[in-house]
């Protein structure tokens, strides 16, 4: 029983990271039909930027500020302004391909410019574990879970409680109508890109002490985020949240109870079945089609 509980806690912590990445993914999709295949690299990069800044000789706190600012500027604002905006009108696929190339570019640049090897990343939470219902649960897992959920709740509150948030949501649901109603659509879209970058940033700082900072870390996270977004129905923040946790849980339980050699396939196969039964995703709405 305590094995099961430990697996659940560890799965929830991993799932929280996936959820952060998946929510950003979904937001960006909603407002600008961007499938960002570089999403995993977005989660990998902030930690590398911070370490690079520290490597240059900045004190750690300043390195965090400089790294974060550089990341938000480059991959919140810059990504939207210089990649998504010029390409948006050409449809989903060319933009998706461009983000694929971007992911290779970020990965290789992080490898050549920083290091091919995994690096230690400072943790904001001490090591150690606490006893919870008789099972040893790591303090760091709890911290990851708490911070990620707090970030998500904060975002949810922003969207539902503030005027800007509601306007942003309206833009996401129907940009054309929003534009007619006089919403500053461009600014709202930019906002979602900044939020996406901020979520990636949080995920990066939470996960790098455990996963270590390495150029190739984005591969797993990006795929998991994509899958979580699909499960959630692609246009639902709640769905992405549920999807993230679900992937984290299934992955951990599959490794322990099904087959460690096929663990990567178990969440996928489960979800394929879900999708075939309910093609609009777990919490998604049906999209209408016109003739």
């Amino acid at each position: 029983m305590d094995q099961f509980l430990q697996l659940i806690v560890a799965g929830l912590a991993t799932g929280a990271i996936y959820a952060l990445a998946a929510i950003g993914f979904t937001l960006v999709w909603q407002t600008s039909q961007t499938i960002n295949f570089a999403q995993g690299e977005f989660v990998m990069l902030p930690a590398i930027l911070v370490l690079t800044a520290a490597h240059v000789g900045l004190p750690m706190w300043l390195a965090f500020i400089v790294g974060s600012a550089a990341f938000i500027l480059l991959f919140g604002f810059g990504f939207k302004r210089f990649l998504v905006e010029p390409m948006q009108r050409h449809g989903v696929l060319p933009l998706a391909i461009a983000t694929m190339a971007l992911s290779v570019l970020i990965k290789e640049a992080a490898k050549n410019g920083f290091s091919a090897e995994a690096q230690h990343f400072p943790s904001l939470v001490p090591d150690g574990s606490v006893s919870f219902l008789g099972a040893a649960v790591s303090a760091r897992d709890i911290a990851i879970f708490v911070v990620a959920v707090a970030a998500i709740l904060g975002l949810q509150a922003f969207i539902t409680r503030t005027r800007t948030g509601r306007t942003m949501q309206a833009t996401a649901q129907n940009p054309t109508v929003a534009r007619i109603l006089g919403v500053p659509v461009e600014r709202m879209i930019l906002l979602t890109f900044l939020i996406n970058a901020a979520l990636a940033l949080i995920a990066s700082y939470l996960i790098s002490p455990v996963y270590l900072a390495k150029f190739s870390n984005g591969e797993t996270i990006g795929l998991a985020a994509f899958i979580a977004a699909i499960v959630g129905g692609f246009n639902q923040i709640r769905g992405a949240l549920a999807g993230g946790f679900l992937i984290g849980l299934i992955d951990n339980l599959a490794a322990a109870y099904v087959s460690s050699a096929y663990r990567a396939a178990v969440p996928l196969v489960v979800l394929v079945v879900v999708i075939l039964v309910k093609p609009e995703g777990l919490l998604g709405r049906k999209e209408e089609r016109t003739v």
């Binding site: 990649l83 010029p86 390409m87 050409h90 449809g91 060319p94 933009l95 391909i97 461009a98 190339a101 971007l102 290779v104 570019l105 290789e108 640049a109 050549n112």
Partner: peptide, 15 residues
């Protein structure tokens, strides 16, 4: 890196 940059520019110039 050069390769990825070339592809990126290509897709942007001619989607």
């Amino acid at each position: 890196i050069i390769y990825a940059a070339v592809v990126l520019v290509l897709v942007m110039v001619s989607p």
